[in-house]
Structures are given as C-alpha cells and as structure tokens.
Nucleic acid binder design. Sequence first.
DNA 1: GCCAACGTTGGC
DNA 2: GCCAACGTTGGC
Length: 155
Amino acid sequence: MKKINYWLVKSEPSDYSFSDLLKEPEQTAEWDGVRNYQARNILQNEMKINDQVLYYHSNSKPSQIVGTAIVVKEGYPDFTSWDPKSKHFDPKSTPQNPKWFMVDIKADKIFKTPITLQEVKNNKKLSNMVLVKNSRLSVQPVTEIEWSIILDMSK
DNA sequence: GCCAACGTTGGC
DNA sequence: GCCAACGTTGGC
C-alpha cells in the first residue's frame, strides 16, 4: 500500500479562495505561482497523487483552515513562470529549463467548522505545526497526527 | 496599514 | 562566501 502524505497550502481568499476552487470544472486547479524554493521543492518532488492537503486562507479575517483537497497531478513545470504577462513571470525560467513547478489539486471536503489560526495556536498538540513555527511558508508538510487532530476539530 | 520575520539579491 | 539592503508575507 502506498503511503499518503499530508500537506497544507495557503492562499489569500481575495486572490483565490476555497470556494473559487469549488467552482472550477472538476473542482480542480493548477497550484501555480509559488515562487519560494522550499515550497517549490515540495511541489516538484514530494507531493504525490492522492496526498491530502489542508486548505488555509491567509491574510484573512480570521485566517483559518477551511477545507481539504487531494493531489491529482504531480509536480510539473509552472508555465506561468515564462509568461511575460503573468504576474508570477520569472525571466530565468524557460520551457527548456523550468525553474518553478506546480501540482494540480482537487477540492475534497469543506469544513463544517473552519479551524482558525488562533485555535491551532491554542492547541498544545499542534504547537509544532509549520503553520505556527514558520508562518511564511506557503506549501508545508503536516504530520499524520496533526492531520487527524485538525479533522476531528472540524467536525 | 503597520511592521516583524524571513527570503533573496548582489556588491565586495 | 559574507552580509547589508531590499522585497515579501502575513498576523495583528
């Protein structure tokens, strides 16, 4: 049996929210625009099909985890990086030598109760979450234990 | 809107 | 390869 990994991705809801993802055909979207090496490495090498993803709304009132998604396509070049019209354009990235990568995710469950950042911080068992420790990383690993605690809280 | 914390760039 | 300057993220 294949091992499932758990992740958390952030998006500003004013930019692209969980309900935007739900409106997509097949509720699936390219997770493009990530321009941070640590996050890129996860997208390119570590996220696998069927991995589970927490969907977090950052810069929000309140900032919170609002649902889950599933990886449906593994790391491939982020073509917005060589599109001069894209706001994520990077002249150092080309189709021949792509610098940035993305995956496709499909919305899975919307939380009955969103989990606010405050609640995550208030839970001692979640004090090692990357979300708490390194608030700037936009694609980050979540442990199986953290995953199950958060899913329990969301019921 | 402020600003702390962090990541990236580039001069030396 | 160091590190100052700069840019960005994201909580508050």
